[in-house]
Write a protein that binds this DNA or RNA. Structure first.
Lengths: 149, 149
DNA sequence: GTTGAAAATAGCGCAGA
DNA sequence: TCTGCGCTATTTTCAAC
C-alpha cells in the first residue's frame, strides 16, 4: 500500500521545486491528465506522504545571524506526540536542523535568529508553543568554526 | 525599501502554513482584494523575500550514514588552545559542522559516519587525538527530522 | 487599492480499458 | 482500479478606474 510509483515520485520532485505550480502544469509535466494527476496528489496528501506546503523565505545572510542549539524534551514520547511535534517543527523556518536523539533530551535543534532579541521571539512564539514540549534548553554558539546550511 | 508592512507579514505567515492556498482565500484572510493581494505576492517574489515554495514531506529525503552530535571540552580555553583545536577540526572531513559554544562544553560538532563502527574509528583516530581535548561526549541521532548540509 | 470581465484552472461525476 | 473526458464553479490575471 505504501509504494510510490514513478508518477508519484515525479509529482513530489516537481512540487519540491515549486509547490505552487498549477495542477494543469504538473499533469502535463508528468504526462497524465489533470484529473488523474490531481487524484494522485490528493491521495498523497491523505496518506500523509505530503504533510503540507510552505514558503521558502530569503535567508538572513549567514554571517549576521546567531546560531542557537536547542535541546527539547517532550512531555511524552508516544508516536503521536513525536509526530505532532515534528509537524510543528517542520513548519518553523528558523529551525535549520532537527534530530531525534538518544539520551536525556528528545530533540536537538539548530535555530538561526537575527540576534538575541529575535531568538527570544522565536523561543516565546514558536518553540514554547509547539505541542507536547516539556523543557527547552538553549545554548548559544559564540562562533561557527564549520558552518552548516 | 526592505520594509514589510502588516499585510506582507500576514501573507508570509499564512503561506508558511499552506503555500498552496488560493490567492482568493489568502486575500480574504488578510482583508484585501484578490488583485491587491496577488500584486503584493508577486512583489515579494520579485524582491527575493520569497525564494520559492516547497512541499513538506513525511520523511526528509533519506541519506545514508549516521549523525552523531559530539560535545567536546578542552583542557584549557586559551586562544592558542582554541586555535590549534579548530585547525585540527577543520581538517577532519567527517565533521560537518562545528560551533564554539557557551555553557558546559566548549565545542559542539555534527559528525557524519557511515555506521556505528565507522564512528568508533573517527572517535578513536580523529576526535580523541585532536590537540587539547579533555572530554568527548557523543549522542547519536535516531533520525533526522530536518537535515543539514 | 478596487472593481469587473475574460482566460485558465480546479474539482467532480461518469464511462471505458 | 486507474485513466481520460466533459462540465461547472472557482480562481487567476489583466485592464481601467
Amino acid at each position: 500500500m505504501g509504494a510510490l510509483d514513478e508518477h508519484d515520485r515525479a509529482i513530489l520532485r516537481l512540487l519540491r521545486q515549486d509547490a505552487r505550480m498549477s495542477n494543469a502544469a504538473l499533469a502535463q509535466a508528468i504526462g497524465l491528465s489533470p484529473s488523474a494527476c490531481l487524484r494522485r496528489l490528493r491521495l498523497l496528501e491523505r496518506r500523509g506522504v505530503i504533510r503540507g506546503y510552505t514558503v521558502v523565505l530569503d535567508e538572513p545572510s549567514p554571517r549576521e545571524g546567531v546560531v542557537v542549539i536547542v535541546q527539547i524534551t517532550l512531555e511524552r514520547q508516544t508516536d503521536e506526540h513525536l509526530r505532532r511535534f515534528e509537524e510543528a517543527v517542520r513548519r518553523c523556518p528558523e529551525v535549520r536542523e532537527c534530530y531525534l536523539m538518544t539520551g536525556l533530551a528528545d530533540y536537538l535543534l539548530r535555530v538561526e535568529a537575527r540576534d538575541a532579541a529575535d531568538y527570544e521571539r522565536i523561543h516565546k512564539e514558536q518553540l514554547s508553543r509547539m505541542p507536547g514540549v516539556a523543557r527547552i534548553q538553549s545554548s548559544f554558539a559564540i562562533r561557527a568554526v564549520i558552518r552548516g546550511a
